[in-house]
Structures are given as structure tokens and as C-alpha cells.
Design a protein around this nucleic acid. Structure first.
Lengths: 204, 204
DNA sequence: GTCTATATTTAGATAGAC
DNA sequence: GTCTATCTAAATATAGAC
């Protein structure tokens, strides 16, 4: 029997609250979602939500803390791929896969809005984005080494830029169209080494 | 002497309120900016703000109504350029030039967040974004005609994608770094016709 | 037209019973 | 742990004096 609190059960309840809150934050936004709304969605009272979280912002952060392990798993899966450029494109497509889910769009926008106001949220996001950036940076460096990626690019800066372009896929508000093809084309061509004839002319 | 209200003066006061409000909405967001804040910034009482606008959302819309003439001017300036591809890249750079202004960043995020909740705001934004999309679509079509842009692209879809990428560049604006070079490379290569040797291999 | 004063509503957070 | 009840604070919008 557990000596003090059942830490597993606490984690479960927190998770359930975060899941319900994510849906509401995505559609209504942070300010317009009330703690009472969250409590109702998860089937408890508002008082109980404050038992699991010190305040409303902490619930918001919990939503994004859930992304860290997923990012780690994805990055790890591609880290040792034989063909780094192919791996980059697959990873990018996977990162953008949720883009057509309107909830993902709403959450991204709300995150951008709130991140300036909560230093602890900055830290949460920094960790997840950092994992992805590390992974992309490594793959870009390996692509440069094997000649499939433009070696003139700074791997870290290119990785950061690619993350920006992935965000663009999320902003593509039209749910009717899949942004992944345009995204793949964009990233593939961005990374592409300078074709020899153009190199001679001093462009791209 | 004016028979009824001085319509010019009303427009001036509305403008002054919109300018002050823009700054506040950009930094604090829509919900956290109070009408009292706006009134104080412009030097009047909250009651006066409600004399010029029916409600707070109307003040927010007024902020974005100011963008329409600017977009028209920019697009018109490039519409008849001799080299459409060059014009696209210049126009894109200009659109992204504001990206390093934190106020522009804040306003864009807030716009994305609020646009879902206000049908009248949708209309305001649709007009401005529509002008830019028309302009880009025309330039892309002309580029396809003169061989500087991949003719396999649908001009309208390509224009929409470019707008999204510009927005993303805005959003992740690290104020320390200029996104325009990466943006130019990205757009130029995205639009580029398929090099002949790659075409033979059936790759994009 | 601009103000002051206020009605109305609502939300975050807490206290304390069970 | 979960609830109900409530405190406190703030914000939109209006009323009505000047």
C-alpha cells in the first residue's frame, strides 16, 4: 500500500485535466476558457482543478509538457537513418501531420500568444523545440557531409528555419488542403546543394 | 460651418483611438487590454471610446482596417514589374520587413487568435489578404509564362503558401536575427522551375 | 462630445465541510 | 480528495450630468 499520496494516480488525474483543457484552450483560447469550463469537461468541480494545479496557467503549461516525450521519440526514430536528407523530409512531414487538425492550429496560435507572458511556459516550449532542433541539426550536418544537403548552410540555423516553415504548415488554415506536399517541396529545395551550373554564375 | 457632425473630425478621433489601441493589443492582447487602458493611452475617458465605437471588438477591427491601403499600395507598386520573379522576392521581403517589429508580431498573433470569433473581422482581413494574394497570383502566373517560375505550380495555391510562409517568418521572429535572407532563399527555390537533369529523373 | 458614476456580470482562487 | 459556497476583483457597457 502506498505510504503517502499515490503519485501515479495524481499523474493520471493531471493528465485527464490537461487533455480536456487542451481542447478548450484550442477552440476558445486561454482567457475565454474558464477553470469552470475545464472542470465541467473533465467531470469534476472547479475546486478540484485547483487541487491538482496551483493556478490556471499551470494547466496551460501542462498541455504542452505532454509534447516532450513525443518529440523525443520522433527524433530518436530518425536520428540514425542511413539517408539523412530523406530522414529530414520524413521527420518534417511527421511534425506537420497534425497541421490539418483545427485544434492543433488553435493551440499553436494560443501558445504564441501566451508564451511571452509566462517564463515557465517559455522553458517548457524551449525544451521540446530544443529536442527537435538538435535532431534536425544533426541530420543536416550529416546531409552536408554526404553531399545531399548544401554544405554552405549553418546546420543549426537551417534547423531553426525549418521549424519555422513547419509552423507555417500549421498556420495554413484551410482544412481542405494538405500542406505537407508544399512543405516537403519547400524544405527539400531549401536544403538542396547549389546545382553546378548555377554555382558558376554565383547564384542562388 | 458643418450642418451635422464633422465627419472628418470623427474619423480623426477614431484613428487616434485605433493607433493607441494597436500598441496595447500588440503587447497585452485583446482580452487583457481594457477599454480603460485604451482610453487612458489616448487621453480620454472610457465613456468616450464607446461614443466612437459600439464595442471593444469594433476598436480591434479598426486597427486592421488601416492595413488595407498599405497593402494596395505595395501590391500596385510591383504589379507591372518587368521581371515577375524578382518582383515576387522584393514584395515578399517587404511584407516580411515588419517581422522584426515586436508590435507587428504581437498584432499578427492576436489577429490569428481573434479572427475565428468575429465574422466582421474575417471580412476585414479577407480584403487585405485578398489584395496580396491577387498580386502574388498574378506575378506567379506571369513568371510561369516567361519561364522563371515552375509552370506546374497552381498560381493561386502557390501564392497562398507563400503568404503562410511569410507569416511564419513573422511569428518566430527572433528579434536578433533577420529572417529575410532565409525567406528569400526559400521562396526563390520553391518557385524555381525543375532543373532539366532532375526533370529527367522524375523528381521535383 | 466628454465626463463621472455605476449597474451588471463574471472569473480566479480560497475556505472549510464531508 | 472532492465538493459547495463564497470572497474579491475587475471589466464591459450604460445613464445621465454638464
Amino acid at each position: 500500500m502506498a505510504r503517502t499520496v499515490d503519485v501515479g494516480r495524481v499523474a493520471e488525474r493531471r493528465e485527464a485535466i490537461a487533455v480536456a483543457a487542451a481542447r478548450l484552450f484550442a477552440t476558445a483560447g486561454f482567457e475565454r476558457t474558464t477553470v469552470a469550463d475545464i472542470a465541467r469537461a473533465v467531470g469534476v468541480s472547479a475546486g478540484s482543478v485547483f487541487y491538482y494545479f496551483p493556478d490556471k496557467r499551470a494547466v496551460f503549461r501542462a498541455v504542452f509538457e505532454r509534447d516532450l516525450p513525443l518529440a523525443q521519440e520522433r527524433v530518436a526514430r530518425y536520428a540514425d537513418a542511413d539517408q539523412p536528407l530523406t530522414a529530414i523530409l520524413e521527420l518534417v512531414a511527421e511534425l506537420a501531420a497534425d497541421a490539418r487538425d483545427p485544434a492543433a492550429y488553435g493551440l499553436l496560435v494560443e501558445l504564441l500568444r501566451q508564451v511571452d507572458r509566462d517564463p515557465e511556459l517559455v522553458e517548457v516550449v524551449r525544451r521540446t523545440a530544443g529536442i527537435v532542433q538538435e535532431g534536425l541539426t544533426g541530420l543536416i550536418a550529416r546531409g552536408a557531409a554526404d553531399g545531399t544537403v548544401d554544405a554552405a548552410l549553418d546546420p543549426r540555423e537551417a534547423a531553426a528555419w525549418i521549424q519555422v516553415v513547419v509552423d507555417a504548415a500549421y498556420l495554413n488554415a484551410d482544412p481542405a488542403r494538405d500542406p505537407v506536399p508544399a512543405l516537403r517541396r519547400t524544405v527539400a529545395r531549401y536544403l538542396q546543394p547549389v546545382p553546378r551550373d548555377e554555382e558558376a554564375r554565383g547564384e542562388p
